[in-house]
């Protein structure tokens, strides 16, 4: 089903609802139509959503450091893009399974970030860590 077909059905549903709702309390009618619109929007997002958004995303590329894929062991990693060193370039900051944070300095340019290794983020002279136990 295409999105324009879905929109036509939405309009049709609203008209049907409107016809029946007219027999009810007039003030409630507007509120119910608003709720109905929200339900339809959720339905539309659910059915057509993937096509609407996924089509704009490009292929997945593994980010590299020093020319090799960044590869965590154990394999859990949470990334964040942020200019931590205030040099005008966004860096890569990661959190890992052990509760440590890594800082990958962007040594590339704005339109093409590059990383040559990392440093652990420190806290009071030691590796910053979120304890598990």
């Amino acid at each position: 089903m295409y999105l324009h077909e879905l929109n036509n059905i939405n309009i049709y549903l609203i008209l049907i609802y409107h016809k029946h709702a007219a027999f009810w309390n007039g003030e409630l009618l507007i509120q119910r139509i608003i709720i109905m619109k929200k339900i339809i929007l959720i339905l539309a997002m659910t059915i057509a959503g993937s096509a609407m958004f996924a089509q704009t995303l490009g292929k997945l590329t593994i980010i590299e450091s020093n020319g090799n894929p960044i590869d965590y062991k154990p394999p859990y990693v949470g990334p964040a893009i942020y200019d931590l060193d205030n040099d005008g370039l966004d860096d890569l900051i990661t959190g890992d399974y052990h509760g440590n944070f890594r800082f990958y300095k962007n040594v590339g340019i704005k339109s093409n970030p590059k990383y040559n290794g990392f440093e652990f983020i420190m806290a009071e002279g030691e590796k910053a860590v979120i304890k598990n136990w």
């Binding site: 490009g58 590329t61 593994i62 960044i70 590869d71 394999p75 890992d96």
Partner: peptide, 12 residues
């Protein structure tokens, strides 16, 4: 084999 990769997907 498991890897802990970081991917980027650029929006077109």
């Amino acid at each position: 084999k498991s890897h802990g990769f970081v991917f980027v997907s650029l929006q077109k």
